[in-house]
Every structure is written in structure tokens, then in C-alpha cells.
């Protein structure tokens, strides 16, 4: 029993210490962004590898999620004779929830893990400390551009995901199941609110991009510089990002859509 309590205390302490290091790291990263701004090329290069290279997985996943939504939505709505509102259902679920959440989870798996492994290996091969000895701050040169790129890419990827998903829903809904195409689009236009639905969705994806990039970069930077350490850090990135994204999604949803 005593041992269990000791272990619990130990773990809590380690956890809080890490949280402290992580917060300090985030602060350094954000203040490093100022020195990145005059060198947009650094950010653009990272947006390519973080954002553009995630296009394929985001597009394909978005398409399938949209198609499944079209199928499921049709079966339920047609029971009530309301299959005309399929467009609303597909678009609202995507823009409010699935777009930001699923694309953030995919982002953490595809780009986040890659970032952690990259930074962790740079640490293990002394590239970061070599940079420090060349009087180049690795936070400013390596971390901040990647953070900014992740943070900017996420809303764009979420938007892409939702857009492709809506097209997928339309393909199944009106292409396969015979929902009127005009109704699909016009109902969607009429019912979806720019402020409530789209902006809130974008805010969510910005928050998720922030959290996922922070976790990925910090885990890499904080990794034990061995092969095992980097592998563990990569796992932690995916697991912690998933938890944070889903937990935050609940909180954000409660705040945004609570009093409707």
C-alpha cells in the first residue's frame, strides 16, 4: 500500500515536472516565432512536409467518412421521409465535429509522429546540440517554424476534409440513393450557419492544430536520445494527442453549442 502511494506520488511529480517543462518549451517556441517571421521560407518548407504531404490521407479519409455519413444518414432520415435534409446532416456533422476531430487525429498520426521522430533523432544524433554550438538556437531555427506550420496547416486540412466529405455524401446520397441534388445543396445552404457552424469548426481545428503540434514537438525535444527513447516518444505523441484532441473537443463543443 505504502509502495503504491509512493509510486503514485512519484508519477504525479514526474507528470507535473513534465508539464512544467512543456509549458516553458511552448513559451520559448511562441516567442521564437517572431524571429521566424522574416524567413517565411522556413515555414513554407515545413508546411509542405506537414501539410501538403498529408493531402492524400486527408482527402481519402474525408471522402470515405462523407460517403458513410451519406449512407447512414439516408437510412435513418428516410424513415421519417426527411431524406431531403441529408445535405444538412452530412455537412453539419462534418463541419462541426468530424472534420476538425478526425483530421486532427489523422494529423497527429501522420505529421505529429513524423515530427516527434525527426526532432528526437536530431537530438540523438547531436544535431540540436551542434546547432547550439554554432550559436543557432534550435528552438528558433527548428521548432518554431514547425510549430507555426502545423498550426497553420491544421485548419486548412480540416477544411479540405469537410469539403471532400460533403462531396462524398452527395455522391452516395444523390448519385446512389436518389436524393434530389438541388435539395441536398439548398437545404445545406439554408440550415448551416456561417458563425455557429463554420467558424466554430475552424476554431476547433486551430485549437487542435496548436495542441497536436505542441505535443509532437515537445515529445521529440524531450525524448531520451536513444532509439528506444525516440520510439516511446513517438507513441506518446499519438496517444497524448488523441486524448487531448477528444477531451478538448468535448469541452469546446459544450462551450460552443451548449445553449442552443
Amino acid at each position: 500500500m505504502i509502495e503504491f502511494l509512493q509510486q503514485l506520488g512519484q508519477n504525479t511529480r514526474t507528470g507535473f515536472t513534465k508539464l512544467g517543462r512543456g509549458t516553458f518549451f511552448l513559451f520559448q517556441t511562441i516567442s521564437g516565432i517572431l524571429s521566424v517571421l522574416p524567413r517565411p521560407r522556413l515555414v513554407l518548407n515545413q508546411m509542405y512536409s506537414i501539410g501538403v504531404l498529408s493531402f492524400l490521407i486527408i482527402t481519402i479519409s474525408g471522402l470515405f467518412v462523407g460517403m458513410v455519413l451519406g449512407l447512414q444518414g439516408y437510412y435513418i432520415l428516410s424513415d421519417f421521409g426527411a431524406e431531403e435534409t441529408l445535405g444538412v446532416m452530412v455537412a453539419a456533422s462534418l463541419v462541426r465535429e468530424l472534420g476538425p476531430v478526425v483530421s486532427a487525429l489523422l494529423f497527429a498520426g501522420r505529421a505529429g509522429s513524423a515530427l516527434t521522430a525527426e526532432i528526437g533523432l536530431m537530438k540523438a544524433t547531436e544535431q540540436l546540440s551542434g546547432m547550439e554550438m554554432m550559436a543557432v538556437d534550435p528552438i528558433k531555427r527548428i521548432i518554431s517554424p514547425r510549430f507555426l506550420a502545423g498550426f497553420l496547416s491544421m485548419p486548412l486540412l480540416a477544411a479540405l476534409f469537410s469539403a471532400v466529405g460533403i462531396i462524398g455524401g452527395q455522391m452516395v446520397g444523390s448519385g446512389l440513393l436518389g436524393v434530389d441534388e438541388g435539395a441536398y445543396w439548398s437545404q445545406m445552404q439554408a440550415k448551416l450557419d456561417f458563425q455557429d457552424d463554420i467558424i466554430n469548426g475552424v476554431i476547433k481545428s486551430i485549437v487542435f492544430g496548436f495542441i497536436a503540434s505542441w505535443i509532437a514537438l515537445f515529445e521529440g525535444y524531450d525524448a531520451i536520445p536513444t532509439s528506444e527513447g525516440v520510439s516511446r516518444a513517438t507513441t506518446r505523441t499519438v496517444v497524448n494527442s488523441a486524448f487531448s484532441i477528444l477531451g478538448l473537443d468535448f469541452i469546446l463543443t459544450a462551450l460552443m453549442f451548449g445553449d442552443n
Binding site: M122, T125, E126, Q127, S129, G130, E132, M133, M134, A135
Partner: peptide, 19 residues
């Protein structure tokens, strides 16, 4: 310190080249 480091070179065991 960073200004001083510009005048100090260091050769790491692994080379520490940016890959």
C-alpha cells in the same frame, strides 16, 4: 554567449551534420 560561440568551433564525435 551566442556571440562567443560564433568564435568557438566544435567538432562532434558523430559530426552532427544536418541530415
Amino acid at each position: 554567449l551566442y556571440n562567443l560561440r560564433k568564435r568557438m568551433g566544435m567538432l562532434f564525435q558523430s559530426g552532427a551534420l544536418l541530415t
